[in-house]
Amino acid sequence: MAKRLSFLVNTEKCIGCHSCEMACKNYYQLDPNIRWRKVYPLHEETFTLPERNFMSLACNHCAQPECLRVCPVGAYTKRKDGIVIHDHNRCIGCRLCTMACPYQVPQFNKKYKKVEKCNMCFQRIDKGENPACVDGCPMEAITVIDLNSFDELGTVEAFAGFPDPRITQPSVRFVKPQIGFQVRRDR
């Protein structure tokens, strides 16, 4: 049976330290303003108490990838294991994918006039290793799972503000943060 590889991001463990993002940049020595993985703060107001929570996002390797659908030159392919790969050689830098992706994953690199994005470190995956972000996270908050066999109990597909997963069926799951008890002088 084919796999459906996905990132599982545990936002309860995540401390928003940006190590995942930097581990990726370090591994691929990305240009300064290119971020294949990004750590987004979740809005304080979305929780019952003020909290510092984050969502670490790279490419979601969607089941229905819009990038792949709109690319006029076939630069995108979806592997049998679900990883969506962008071929830099084929890319003509038209940026249609950057407009189509609801998650703003493909990024235009002005230096090369081409797009680039996270490929889930597929060469590492093929050798049985973890992606660089997974191995870089000090909290072990990111793992790679196979959605075809993963028991999704206790995980969610989206947070408030996350684009509707029905559009592209992103292969990403989250463990939601727990809210601790707070004794505050202002409430």
Partner: peptide, 13 residues
């Protein structure tokens, strides 16, 4: 444990 912080991972820069 084989992991670094954001600062550590930025050393090439």
């Amino acid at each position: 444990r084989g992991r670094l912080c954001a600062k550590g991972f930025s050393y090439t820069r």
